[in-house]
Write a protein that binds this DNA or RNA. Structure first.
Lengths: 135, 135
DNA sequence: TTTACTGCAAAGCATTTGCAGGGCG
DNA sequence: CGCCCTGCAAATGCTTTGCAGTAAA
């Protein structure tokens, strides 16, 4: 169990809680300067890394290479278009995965912090567009 | 519906089927040269992209920035360590997500090709290691 | 003083893009 | 002849790392 957070880890975590949405490291960098709490980009990455290892936040990777972070616990389900990259969150009252998660947890070999569930396909606009280009 | 695949798309798809495992673009590049079917890296990326859009293959993003590809047949769920990156596949006889997937599909607004489900946490070795460094 | 944290700038690296040569219809 | 596919090399962009200065214990 990690005892203390560093100054910058606290700043980052606090902002993530305030914003309460997915945000990239680069955006965090901008937001922090707006708030006159500037941190170096490297520091932000290091802070995010540490927080992630403590289970305080969760990450979602995007196909453009970015990573989005949020405080661990809400919406982690997404419907993402393979073409345009649009990603819409899905809110399930009851996540069908928790049972499995607990079962895996039971094995004791792995300590699970969170999971991500993402559906990939084509959104309507992109589907139309594609069928056009293929006569 | 896309009619024909290009030469390189066929080569890539065929190899993916043969290998029947997750593989990165860079590895594909190497495997293809071994097989005397060399393709340029850019071509491989373009082929993978096209195949993905046709729903022929699926992709999984790794935190190190790589993307792994497989032919889209079965569900691949993973248990991944946030520290060392080790990723072990989970085989579920019955995936608890299909019901949800069909339901989403029903809406008709999105054509779903596949989904990814991944659990993140710490594996035993990394968990121990971490508790040591924090007395 | 000894160790840990930060910031800056310099890599690192998978992926993407521009462009010219080639293949195919 | 014209269009699409390819490969090479250059460029992109997020993230990581080396290192020296600084704060904390």
């Amino acid at each position: 169990m990690k005892s203390q957070l560093t100054r910058s880890q606290n700043i980052v975590l606090k902002l993530l809680k305030q914003l309460n949405r997915e945000i990239s490291a680069q955006e965090l960098y901008v937001e922090l300067r707006k708030a006159n709490l500037s941190l170096g980009l490297a520091t932000i990455y290091r802070a995010l890394d540490a927080l992630k290892l403590h289970g305080a936040i969760q990450a979602r990777l995007l196909s453009n290479g970015e990573t989005l972070y949020t405080t661990a616990q809400q919406d982690r389900h997404h419907l993402t278009c393979l073409q345009c990259g649009t990603s819409i969150p899905i809110q399930d009252e009851d996540c069908p995965v928790h049972a499995l998660e607990e079962q895996l947890q039971q094995s004791g070999k792995f300590e699970i912090f969170y999971h991500t569930l993402e559906f990939f396909g084509l959104c309507s606009p992109c589907r139309l567009e594609q069928s056009h280009s293929n006569s």
